Amino acid sequence: MLVLLPPSEGKANSGAGVPLKLESLSLPGLTAAREAVLTELVELCAGDEEKAREVLGLSEGLRGEVAKNAGLPAAGARPAGEIYTGVLYDALGLATLDTAAKRRAARSLLVFSGLWGAVRVTDRIPSYRCSMGVKLPGLGALGAHWRAPMAEVLPEAARAGLVLDLRSAAYAAAWKPKGEVAGRTATVRVLHAPTRKVVSHFNKATKGRMVRALLTAGAAPKDPAELVAVLRDLGYVVEAEAPRKAGTAWSLDVLVEEIH
């Protein structure tokens, strides 16, 4: 099982660890694309601060993120699972998983990123600010920048198992499973059952708890149909829509009664 996650806007501080080594990150086929984004981002943020803030869409209160980006090559690096914070990652609680569940997380979780493309939770990265919606002056829209290298690398990472896609729309734009991989991909929405509307906060929290439950249970569904059965066994109310044509992902709605 490969679980595709969005990153978090908020991130923990890098700390004083060993600086980033691009060549040490998982999915080495993305190294050249990562280096291109990193080089331009650092150059942008080391130059005109106001321009950098505008390009990155940062408010006045986040001005300090520009300087943080400028210092990325020398910044300490920590496991991505410690860097990413926020509602989904708080609910996932990687640090409190048992040993076996942590091993499963290291194998199966893939976090998408405007800067790194995608990383595993064990990959060591510094704290940064660069969403997938950013358009860098030289490279252009990052979603488009990542499509070609992702199309080369991600099918291999998906292997022959289930792909559980929990990404938000901006990050889903960087890689869309196609063909045979799409047929074993399940995308998930979390809906407030009484209103059947998506509410951002509990949508993220529910996805985090759901991934935690799958990891803790040692679940290994091989396809979307098995995933539906596993989630129902774990107590989730799931409505599933099988694709009407080949090469299309399954759509799953997880219904939640209470917003918390």
Rank of each mutant, 00 (worst) to 15 (best):
Gly117Ala: 12
Trp250Ser: 07
Arg209Phe: 11
Val181Arg: 01
Trp116Asp: 05
Val121Met: 03
Pro149Thr: 04
Ala217Trp: 06
Ala12Gln: 07
Thr96Gln: 15
His260Ala: 15
Pro177Gln: 06
Ala205Asn: 13
Lys245Glu: 15
Thr99Arg: 12
Glu35Asn: 12
Ala225Gly: 09
Glu54Cys: 01
Val188Asp: 08
Ser26His: 04
Trp116Cys: 05
Arg147Ile: 11
Pro79Arg: 04
Arg63Asp: 03
Ala33His: 05
Asp123Gln: 04
Ala173Ile: 00
Ser14Tyr: 00
Gly29Cys: 07
Asp165Thr: 08
Ala12Pro: 10
Thr96Leu: 04
Leu20Thr: 02
Asp165Cys: 04
Val238Asp: 07
Asp48Trp: 05
Lys102Gln: 15
Glu60Ser: 12
Lys11Tyr: 08
Thr31His: 12
Pro149Met: 09
Val190Ile: 15
Leu97Phe: 06
Gly218Gln: 08
Ala36Met: 05
Ala225Val: 15
Leu227Phe: 03
Ala249Pro: 15
Arg129Phe: 07
Arg103Asn: 08
Leu92Met: 10
Met1Glu: 01
Cys45Asn: 11
Asp98Trp: 02
Glu50Ile: 04
Val198Thr: 14
Leu94Ile: 07
Ala158Thr: 02
His145Ser: 11
Leu115Lys: 05
Asp123Met: 12
Ala205Glu: 14
Thr195Cys: 00
Arg209Ile: 00
Gly218Asp: 07
Glu226Ile: 05
Leu164Val: 11
Arg147Lys: 15
Val237Ile: 05
Ala213Tyr: 01
Leu214Met: 10
Pro137Val: 09
His260Gln: 09
Glu40Ala: 01
Val3Ser: 03
Phe202Trp: 08
Gly208Ala: 01
Ser131Ile: 11
Val256Ile: 14
Ala16Gln: 13
Ile125Met: 00
Leu255Pro: 13
Ala158Gly: 03
Gly17His: 01
Glu43Ala: 15
Ala70Asp: 08
Val87Trp: 04
Glu152Met: 05
Glu9Gly: 10
Cys130Val: 15
Pro126Phe: 03
Leu20Tyr: 01
Gly93Cys: 10
Leu97Tyr: 01
Val37Met: 09
Gly143Lys: 07
Lys222Pro: 01
Ala74Met: 02
Glu65Asp: 13
Ala229Asn: 02
Val181Tyr: 00
Ala148Pro: 01
Arg34Asn: 10
Val66Ser: 07
Pro137Gln: 06
Gly71Met: 04
Met210Cys: 08
Leu142Asp: 09
Asp253Ala: 14
Lys197His: 06
Ala220Ile: 00
Gly179Asp: 10
Ala213Asn: 09
Ala219Ile: 10
Ala193Ile: 06
Leu110Thr: 02
Cys45Trp: 02
Val230Ala: 11
Lys245Thr: 14
Leu109Trp: 06
Val199Ile: 14
Ala151Asn: 08
Ser59Leu: 09
Pro6Gly: 02
Val119Asp: 09
Val237His: 10
Ala118Thr: 12
Leu214Ile: 03
Ala33Thr: 08
Ala169Lys: 12
Arg107Cys: 04
Val18Gly: 01
Val230Ser: 03
Lys11His: 06
Ala106Tyr: 00
Gly76Ile: 05
Leu142Thr: 09
Lys51Pro: 00
Gly161Val: 09
Glu35Pro: 02
Glu50Lys: 13
Gly71Val: 06
Leu214Trp: 01
Leu164Met: 11
His192Trp: 11
Leu215Pro: 14
Asn69Lys: 06
Lys178Asp: 11
Pro177Tyr: 10
Ala100Pro: 03
Asp233Met: 05
Ala105Ser: 13
Ala220Leu: 12
